[in-house]
């Protein structure tokens, strides 16, 4: 997590102009966003289908994997984390993975996963 300290003057013309340039660089078009949304919708349909169709032993892992895929698609593309400054990823994923770690451990002490 090292950064170079630079005197930042580029942004001095106003946040809006700066923000505009930032988005242009990311190259996600409206078309791209709609594609992502379609994939998300398809996964959701698949998730809901598990309620009607018996997936057998695949049921739980499949649901969890689909959940994680949807989660990271929204975070990476809709929230721009994939294209943005790595610092944002550090901040957010620190919280996310810490949360997963401590709460899974806490539930583990209740023998939650053995039931």
């Amino acid at each position: 997590m090292t950064m170079h300290t630079t005197e930042h003057t580029a942004a001095s013309h106003g946040d809006s102009a700066h923000g505009g340039a930032e988005h242009a660089e990311h190259g996600m078009s409206t078309r791209g966003y709609i594609n992502i949304a379609l994939i998300l919708a398809a996964i959701t349909a698949l998730e809901v289908s598990t309620y009607y169709v018996d997936f057998g032993p695949l049921f739980l892992p499949a649901l969890l994997i689909m959940m994680v895929v949807k989660f990271f698609m929204v975070v990476s593309y809709f929230m721009h984390l994939k294209f943005d400054n790595k610092l944002f990823s550090w901040m957010f994923y620190a919280g996310l993975f810490l949360a997963v770690g401590v709460y899974v451990a806490a539930l583990g002490t209740f023998h939650f996963f053995l039931r």
Binding site: H8, S12, G14, N85, L87, M91, G95
Partner: peptide, 25 residues
């Protein structure tokens, strides 16, 4: 807006928002 000096070159508000979301996790 003038003299928007930021050591990392990223906006204060955006960094603050991501920290907040990390906390919300």
């Amino acid at each position: 807006h003038e003299g928007h000096t930021s050591s990392t070159g990223i906006s204060n508000v955006k960094l603050g928002m991501w920290l907040f979301l990390g906390s919300e996790c």
